[in-house]
Design a protein around this nucleic acid. Sequence first.
DNA 1: ACAGAATCCGGCTTATAGACCAACTCACTT
DNA 2: AAGTGAGTTGGTCTATAAGCCGGATTCTGT
Lengths: 155, 155
Amino acid sequence: MYGFNVVSLDQKGRLAIPAKYRNTLLENNETQIVITKDPQYPSLKIYPKSQWIKISSKLESLQGLDPIVRNLQWTILGNASVTEFDPGGRMLILIPIELRKYADLVDQKQISLIGMGNKFEIWNVNNWEMRQTGGSLAAEILDVVLPESIKSMSF
Amino acid sequence: MYGFNVVSLDQKGRLAIPAKYRNTLLENNETQIVITKDPQYPSLKIYPKSQWIKISSKLESLQGLDPIVRNLQWTILGNASVTEFDPGGRMLILIPIELRKYADLVDQKQISLIGMGNKFEIWNVNNWEMRQTGGSLAAEILDVVLPESIKSMSF
DNA sequence: ACAGAATCCGGCTTATAGACCAACTCACTT
DNA sequence: AAGTGAGTTGGTCTATAAGCCGGATTCTGT
């Protein structure tokens, strides 16, 4: 489940998961997906249920009073919305208005859906393109900014 | 039990748990919920009974003279209020006046109900919106402030 | 102690959001 | 060129939120 797609929202604000992803999900018995805010960028994240359980349970287990943690919990848990495949095997996701505002999707007909393997991201088409315009990251920047644990990886 | 909802208080100040949550609660035999103060923010917390038992017993077990701990105990334990589903299977919560004052809900018709998985939060709509700064957290802030256990998480 | 008032609780009704279903069009394949 | 499958649309219908109302119970003040 990788790749970049432009998909459309219909007049009711519904989004159809492309068939290639849908089939993979069904094959893995992933009949529910969760959509929520990305805490870092004005975009949305879509997780298959099993992936969501990992993330949400970890977040919920953090009990402390750290305001940043609570903020993360609000953003991610407090905005999650669950959708199931309908009996016909189709999946039309109604993106809640709050999330549409957050990701700048109000009145958008076309949106970007990016497959990231075990999750998807949803972006306003323009915002996504702006993110990408940088082209490739200069080697120097990569060298300076990346944490050690990443530097050692080979891509 | 995740997500953001604006629900209304009826003329008597009663709050109805939305059906989607109610059903999940009933399926898990959670017929009682507990509402109490959030010690950190002017908001309220709603726990299913089983979750409440974990939290309250942990709090009760804290002995000693630490004034912070005693304060937490007063706030959380001393303001708890139990509500049951009525025979018709619906749950109307009458929020005690003390709690309504605390969360700035007096004379409010609309309130924010945020599902956080194993608990809910109740906010004055305006206060909630102010908290949600509208934007996303800057990547740099996330990186600097987050505890190690979170930094390593992938969202 | 009793009456009036205020608060609390359950049932009923209505407007509506959203889930469900079906059809149509377009594109791709054979 | 025809058929199949995917994407998209629109209509319908059901579940539910929310307001309303009437009855019950508790509280208060005289």
